[in-house]
Every structure is written in C-alpha cells, then in structure tokens.
Computed example of a mutant assay.
Amino acid sequence: MHKRILAICLVTMFLAMAVIPTGFAANTDQVVITYGETAYMNPQYKSVVDNYFAEKANVDLNNVNSKVITAGDVNKISSGFSGKYYNSNQIFSSALLDLNQNGEITVEVDDSITTITPEMYMSALKSAGIQGGHVYVTSPVSATGESALAGIMDCYEEATDVEIPENVKEAANQEIATQAEIINNSNVSADDLNKLVEDVKEKVSEENITDHATIVNIINDYSTTYNINISDNDIENLAETIEQVQSVQDDANAYKEQISDIVDSSSSDGGFSLDGIFNSILSVFNINL
C-alpha cells in the first residue's frame, strides 16, 4: 500500500512538473494545412479559417506547415473528367490534416460546407488508399467542398513526403464530383447516396467486377433496396466512376503500403498514456506493486 501511495505521489509530481506547464504538444511535422487560394488571399477569410482550425485541432498554427491550393491545382485533377474549371476566386475550401490522432481516418466538416459530407470525403480517401489521420474541412463562406479534396490529398503528400499517383487522385476526385452532381440533380440525400456508393464499391471490389453493365445492374439493385430514385444518366456516370475507382486499386494499394508505416507510427506516437507514465516511473524507482 505504501509503495502504491509513493508511486501515485511520484506520478502526480511528474505531471505537475512536466505536463501542466508545457501542455501536450503534437508533432507539428505531422500537421499540415492547405488553404483555398481565395480564402488565403483575404485576411478576414483566412482569420475565420485559422480560428476554426486552432479551436478544432488544438494546435499552434504558427508551427504548422501550410500550402495554398490554387484553382490551377484543382483544375489539374478535375477538368479531365468533369469538365469543370475553377477560377481563382472560387477556391474557398481549406483543410487541416493531423496524423498525430489515433485510430482510423476521421473527417470533421464545418457547417459552411454545403454538399460534401464527412462520409463522402472518407469514402473518396479510402478509395485512394488512405486509411488514417484526422481531417478538418472548413470554408469562410458557403462552399460545396468539392475543391477541398485536392487540398486534403496535398496534405497527405506533404505530411508523408509520398506522392499520390495521379490516376488515383483523379479517381478519388471523380467520386466526389459525381456524387455532388447527383445530389444537385436529384432529391437524394448525401447520406443515402454515400451509403449506396459505399455498398456498390464494396461489392465491386470483393468480386473484382470490371464490366460496366454489371456495375449498372448493381447500382440499380441497391437503388431499389434503398428506395433511391436517380436518373439513368446519373446511374451511368456513377457506374463509370466506380469502374475508374476499381481500375486504380492496384496503384491505390501500392500507395497505401508506402504510407502505412508513416501513418501507423504517427498514430501510435501521437498520444500519451497515464498507465505508461505510471509504469515507467515504477520501473525507474524499482517499485513493484
């Protein structure tokens, strides 16, 4: 009993001296911000974005690596499949990636993002082979959030120093763009559509289906199951999107292997355990309980 009281006192002293004054500091090398160029160039907009990230991620933004995502960056991976071209005054969405967070990939999206949901971002990122990290997305004004995916993927490249293959980027962006277009064309909710897309992708992946007509039939089946009504044209576009996602899975898996050690080590080293501190102090003072 006396030994345990002594150990608890030592732990308390250690925390008081080491932890309380300095606080818990994340590894800022594993935190990256990408600003949409429109938000970055406007001091008021940038302040709104910075305040959101500082509050949500609890990091000192002065010590965080950052990049600006331009319309040209977004257009490189969007115009080829969707025909969309963004102007420099249209890139508001900004993203922060924190690889210090434990667990699987999580995404938090501000209310300013009107179309793309956290689940849609996660689905697209998983299609690209990304499985870990905590992502925050915001915009200083209402925005669809479509361009933010380019920023999120840039965050991962910056934090891991590993480039995502261009065909994998294109497939992930096409997934986001196609879902956004379907939402705009129909009354289907983002959550219902994302559930359908996830289930279709899972079935196509498990059975390694590459035939377009078969994928269309699968989409139709799930649409009936979930009572989702989307046009034949949207179904065709979605089938093409899922085909492309499936076609790049070898490259996505190769990328996933390249970053797995980085993401895993970031996740495992990012936090601290009171049990770990407790046991370490016991060992230092040779105390057995």
Results as ranks from 00 to 15, higher is better:
D161G: 07
N227F: 09
S260E: 15
N208I: 14
E104P: 04
D192Y: 00
L6H: 11
D234E: 05
I8D: 14
D221V: 01
A16I: 14
E181F: 05
E181I: 06
K3T: 11
I215V: 06
T38I: 08
N27S: 15
V245C: 07
S247W: 00
Y35H: 01
N58K: 08
Y222N: 05
I176P: 08
M153C: 11
N75Y: 12
A57W: 03
T115L: 11
L15C: 13
I230T: 04
D221K: 09
A172P: 01
E243V: 00
P118V: 07
S47L: 14
V141H: 08
V168R: 07
E202Q: 06
N288K: 14
A252F: 04
S273Q: 14
I219T: 01
V107L: 00
N173S: 10
N194Q: 10
I219N: 05
S280G: 02
D261M: 09
D29V: 00
V49C: 10
D154Y: 12
L196D: 03
Q249D: 09
N229V: 02
F24K: 06
A171G: 14
I218A: 04
L61F: 02
A39V: 03
D29T: 00
V137K: 05
V68Y: 03
I209V: 04
N184Q: 09
G271S: 15
N229K: 08
L149Q: 11
I20D: 09
A25N: 13
S231F: 03
N227W: 01
S223D: 07
S268G: 02
Y136H: 06
T214Y: 00
G151Q: 03
H2N: 09
N220F: 12
Y156C: 02
T144L: 06
A148D: 04
T160Q: 06
G72A: 15
A25D: 13
E236I: 10
T178L: 07
Q44I: 09
I219M: 02
E257C: 00
E181M: 08
M13N: 07
L193D: 10
Y222K: 08
I219W: 07
V216G: 05
T138C: 12
L196M: 13
T241M: 03
I116K: 07
N65P: 01
E206H: 06
K76Q: 15
S186Y: 10
A172H: 01
F278L: 12
M122P: 01
A16S: 11
I262K: 06
D251H: 01
D264Q: 14
A124S: 15
S88I: 11
I228T: 02
A54R: 11
S205K: 10
A39I: 01
Q249C: 04
V32D: 01
E236L: 13
V137C: 08
D111H: 09
N253T: 12
V11R: 14
Y86V: 08
S186C: 08
S283V: 02
N89L: 09
V32H: 06
A39T: 02
I183K: 09
N173L: 12
D191R: 03
I20L: 15
Y45L: 06
A124D: 13
T160V: 05
S78T: 12
N187F: 01
P118M: 05
Q101E: 13
A128C: 07
G72N: 14
V263C: 01
M17V: 11
I105F: 08
H134E: 12
N220C: 04
K195I: 11
N62F: 02
A254F: 10
E207W: 07
T114Y: 13
S266E: 09
V31G: 03
S112V: 05
T214N: 02
Y226W: 07
V109C: 03
A71K: 04
K56M: 14
